[in-house]
Simulated assay, not measured.
Amino acid sequence: MHILVTGAAGFIGSFVCHRLLEMGCRVTGIDNLSDYYSVKLKRHRLALLQDKPGFTFCQLDLADRVAMAELFARERFQRVVHLGAQAGVRYSLDNPMAYADSNMIGTLTVLEGCRQNRVEHLVFASSSSVYGLNTKLPFSTEDCVDHPVSLYAATKKSNELMAHSYSHLYAIPTTGLRFFTVYGPWGRPDMAMYLFTRAIDEGKPLKVFNQGNMQRDFTYIDDIVEGVVRILEKVPQPDPAWRGSPVSASSAPYRIYNIGNNQPASLLDFIRLIEKALGKQAIKELLPMQAGDVRTTCADIEDLYQAVGFKPVTPLEQGVERYVRWYREYYG
C-alpha cells in the first residue's frame, strides 16, 4: 500500500512513518521544514527514515497548489495521513497568517488531491483544542465545539468541517483524530515537556501558568501512533440512518475520534515527575493564565475503543522517564 504522510519531519509524522514502514507500506513523506522550531531536529528525525526501504521524502509546502496536485497525480496514493500543520496555540496569537496558509489552504490542497485521485481513506489530525470553552469532562466527540479560544483551535475545527463537506460531496472516506497533549522522545521544543525539562536540568526558572492550576491529558507518542494506524485500517462507511446524532458520525463516510490518555494530570504533578526523572528540583515562576489556554483537558475515548479495540496504555511516569532519557542522550 502506498501512503502519503504530510508533516513527515514533525514529531507525530516521523513516528507514523516509522510504524507504517515496519508494517511493509510504501511511504511518501512531505514537509516544508519550516523554521517555527529547530530545522536541525526535523532533519535528524528524517535522517532516521531516509535509509529505510520504501520511504521517499519530498520537501514541499502544503499550500503550493500546483506542486500538491502534481504529487497526487503522479504518485496515486491509496491512503493519506495528513499531519502537517502550523502548530502551537500561543504562536497563533502572533502570526495568524501562518495558520491560514498551512492549516486552511494546506488542508484544502490535501482534500482536493484526495478528491481528484480517489484516495481510499484520509486520516487527518485535529486537536483537543477544539473543545475550547467546554467545561463538561471528559471531552466527548458528541460535545459542541463552537467556542474555540485560539485561532489554532478555530483552524482545526475548520479542518473538520472542510473534511466533512468533501466526504459528503465526493464520498471520500475521512476520519479526524483529536489528539490530546502528545509527548515523548523527539518531541517539539516549543512544548511543556521540553521547556520544563530544559529549565529544571539547567537550574533556570520555569514558567508555570495559572499558578499551576491546570490539568492536561498527556498522551504518549506510541499510543498516538497505535491509534492512527488502527484507524487508518478502519475505513468509515456512511450511515444511511443517521439523523444528526451522534455528532461524530454522518450520513457521509466520515468519523471523528479522540485519542487521549483519559487520565488528566495536574501541571504540578507533571513537573514533579520530571524532577524525579532528572534528580533535580524545579525553580517555579508562577504566572497568570495565558490567552488561548484552557484549564483542563480530558478525553472520552470510548468511541475509539469501540471502533478499534484500543486505548492508550502508557503511564505518565513511564513516558516521562523515557523522554528524559532521550533528552539527555540527544541534547546532553
Rank of each mutant, 00 (worst) to 15 (best):
E142S: 14
S158P: 06
Y152I: 03
N117P: 09
E112G: 11
Y152L: 02
R115F: 05
F139W: 09
P148V: 00
E142W: 11
S129G: 12
S127D: 07
G113P: 11
V130P: 03
E112Y: 08
P148Q: 00
S126C: 12
L133I: 01
L111P: 02
E112W: 05
A153I: 06
S127P: 15
A153Y: 06
A125N: 09
P148E: 04
Q116H: 14
T109I: 03
E160F: 01
E160H: 01
K157D: 04
A153F: 05
E160N: 03
V130I: 14
R118I: 13
E120K: 13
V110A: 02
T135M: 11
R115P: 13
F139M: 11
V110D: 04
D143I: 07
R118G: 08
F124N: 12
S128V: 04
K136G: 08
D143P: 07
S158D: 03
C114R: 04
E120T: 09
L137E: 03
V145T: 13
A154F: 06
T141I: 10
L122T: 14
G113E: 09
L151F: 15
Y131N: 10
S140G: 14
T155M: 04
N117V: 02
R115T: 04
Q116S: 15
L151G: 05
S158M: 10
C144P: 08
T141H: 05
T135V: 14
Y131R: 12
R118Y: 10
A154Y: 03
G113M: 12
S158F: 08
V145F: 06
S158V: 02
L137W: 11
C114E: 13
S140L: 15
V110G: 02
D146C: 13
A125H: 05
T155R: 00
A125I: 12
V149M: 02
A154P: 12
T107A: 07
A154W: 00
S158Q: 02
E160T: 01
V119E: 13
D143G: 06
L133P: 04
F139C: 07
C114T: 08
Y152S: 03
E142P: 12
T109Q: 00
S158T: 03
V149Q: 01
S140N: 11
G132N: 13
V149F: 09
N134G: 09
R115S: 12
L108M: 11
K156E: 02
V110T: 10
D143Q: 09
Q116F: 07
T155I: 01
Y131W: 05
N159M: 08
R115W: 04
L111N: 00
V130N: 00
L111W: 02
F139R: 07
F124C: 10
N134I: 01
E112T: 03
R115H: 04
H147W: 06
T107R: 01
R115Q: 10
S128W: 07
L137G: 01
E142V: 09
V110C: 07
E112S: 08
H147F: 06
T109G: 00
R118F: 14
S128M: 01
S127H: 05
L108F: 07
N159C: 13
H121T: 15
F139N: 09
V119Y: 08
V130K: 00
E142K: 06
H121F: 04
E112Q: 12
E120P: 02
R118L: 14
